[in-house]
Nucleic acid binder design. Structure first.
Lengths: 331, 331
DNA sequence: GATCGCCGTGTGATCGATTACACGCAAGCC
DNA sequence: GGCTTGCGTGTAATCGATCACACGGCGATC
């Protein structure tokens, strides 16, 4: 590289200020000079340094995005929304994958600060829980996605977990299942998450229904393992709600190997509606989250905060998508 | 923010040079001053500006990573490898999602240059094809992943597509299928890709075998559609090879709806071995690519290029993973 | 003809770090 | 005592942009 604005200025026989003005679209430059700058830029293949500009303007036009785990298809769909919306606003995205590790998360927060990102988006339930106070005191605007910590000190977007859990369990109950087996997201959050509460509320509304909660970890493997461990409970009275689609798909795989048929013997409901859920066998009944839209919302939200406006947390609506992993087959 | 090295220097009653020296780990600073700087840094919660440092040192410690499509689970696994390896070397990753759009790709290349990334990693077959000459002339080191354009002007890592295609088809042939239906990745690349060539070579090695190639687009939906369109060919003589696992999973879904059983009626082989492939029904026989390792390799490669070494392109070995979507069921 | 204002352009300060160079001082050496 | 040596520290240039301010020239106004 190495071609700077001074080189362009020399080549066009104008000052660096004039070059800067032409490039930033100011209209106060004469036609003659404007043309000379244009040709000089083209001739030298000049690209202004975003680094130098950022230093001077004290703004990097970059958003930091920290996600728990890009390997979970939920996140790429959210990232897509963030990225598109950021691009639309001329912002770049610095992606950090925290891999569910508290130290690593913390390290990334430091990184974002040193990089002087204009704002940060944190898409990680666990992280929101572990670092709320730090995030609330963050020197740049922060918005959370897929998490709603209490107190509500940082603007956040999350789906309506309680209703989601409630819809999932109610649907299974209406299919005739009377024993709900819930595969929770993580041992830590298992007992307290709103998703679980929603399931519990639905079960409590039926006098003859019972609930078992099993801890899992939100992965395919974890869903499979948890289901295998709960094998003896899996009678046709049983319907399975999972913390997310990966867990549910892991459960489907386990049920298959246990010789149980879905939905005839056991019904299964996932959560998230990742793209693949419609393609597994049987296609998965699930609670749909609008991941892309939520991602886009976070960018809109940080933009508004950058404009000095305040932003309220939002609960995003969800929707029950009935596919063939649940059905009226239960006794 | 706004706390600069000068503030720290003032607080510690030393010069900015001394602060800089302490923070960069130079050992030439006296114990007294060193301690004072340390406390000042802590007291002010000072974080050096990566922007200013980048300007001065002419290096951003950042890699640009352009991927075709993060929504395809193949890429997150590769990104994971890139990210981990980058982190290990103290580098950050600027992620760009090109969404298979040539203009957008080109725009991202400009962005990476303006951002002054130290090096770029391009994970996109189509992009490699469309922009080889530009990438070859790139002012910073570039490495390609998941692509091996000819001529070999840019270091690249890609799996052994030819052998992969060959293994997939040979496996189906050995299961007794005699009509191979290949669902190609994209119409453009369909006829020429090494994967297809490998399939063709395997079919040609059997006098009684025939091959049909159908264009698709590498997505779940595309795989499903292509299979539906080819419905009348799907006799038990038939085995399906897919350009990737998403396409194969789409095909499985279509076959199910067509009332065909896998592997008894039709065998299916995917490509990539994304995590979900082991969990669909039937679990997908596929060609495994070591996505994480390939991602890590690209970072190692750009690092070597940054050290002035030259880097040779690499063909990564693949492996046939036999699961239950293929079997000896064919006539 | 003097004054005013505007237009187009250039000069130079500035953003926040790193680092080459210089300098003061103390110890070691002859 | 004078000289070197080296250590610890500070001064100031530098990276590549942006932008406040100044300035020259020209047309309009009275």
């Amino acid at each position: 590289m190495g071609v700077t604005i001074a080189d362009v200025a020399a080549h066009a026989r104008v000052s660096t200020a004039t070059v800067s003005r032409v490039l930033s679209g100011e209209d106060s430059v004469g036609a003659e000079n404007r043309a000379r700058v244009r040709t000089a830029v083209a001739a030298l293949d000049y690209r202004p340094s975003a680094v130098a500009r950022a230093l001077r303007q004290r703004s990097t036009a970059t958003l930091g995005l920290v996600v728990t785990d890009i390997a979970n298809p939920f996140y790429p769909e959210l990232v897509l929304g963030v990225e598109d919306e950021a691009r639309r606003r001329g912002l770049s995205v610095l992606l950090c994958n925290a891999a569910n590790d508290a130290d690593r998360e913390s390290g990334y927060l430091d990184l974002l600060l040193e990089r002087r990102v204009d704002a940060a988006i944190i898409a990680s339930g666990g992280m929101a829980r572990r670092h709320v106070e730090r995030l609330a005191a963050f020197p740049v605007p922060v918005v959370l996605a897929n998490a709603r910590p209490t107190p509500d000190s940082v603007p956040a977007v999350a789906c309506d977990d309680h209703t989601g859990g409630w819809l999932a369990a109610t649907h299974l109950l209406s299919c005739g299942h009377r024993h709900i087996l819930h595969l929770a997201g993580s041992a830590a959050a298992g007992e307290t998450s709103k998703r679980v509460e929603g399931v519990r509320a639905a079960v409590n509304a039926h006098a003859d229904a019972e609930l078992t909660i099993v801890a899992s970890d939100g992965t395919l493997e974890g869903g499979r393992r948890a289901t295998m461990q709960a094998a003896e409970m899996l009678t046709p009275r049983c319907g399975v709600t999972a913390h997310n689609d990966l867990t549910a798909i892991g459960a489907l795989s386990a049920l298959r190997d246990l010789g149980l048929s879905v939905p005839a013997d056991v019904g299964v409901v996932g959560f998230d509606d990742i793209a693949l859920s419609a393609y597994v066998d049987p296609p998965l009944t699930t609670i749909k989250q609008e991941k892309y839209a939520m991602g886009a919302w976070t960018v809109d939200a940080v933009s508004r905060r950058l404009d000095g406006q305040s932003v309220e947390s939002v609960t995003w609506p969800i929707e029950l998508i009935v596919r063939r992993s649940t059905g009226p087959g239960a006794p």
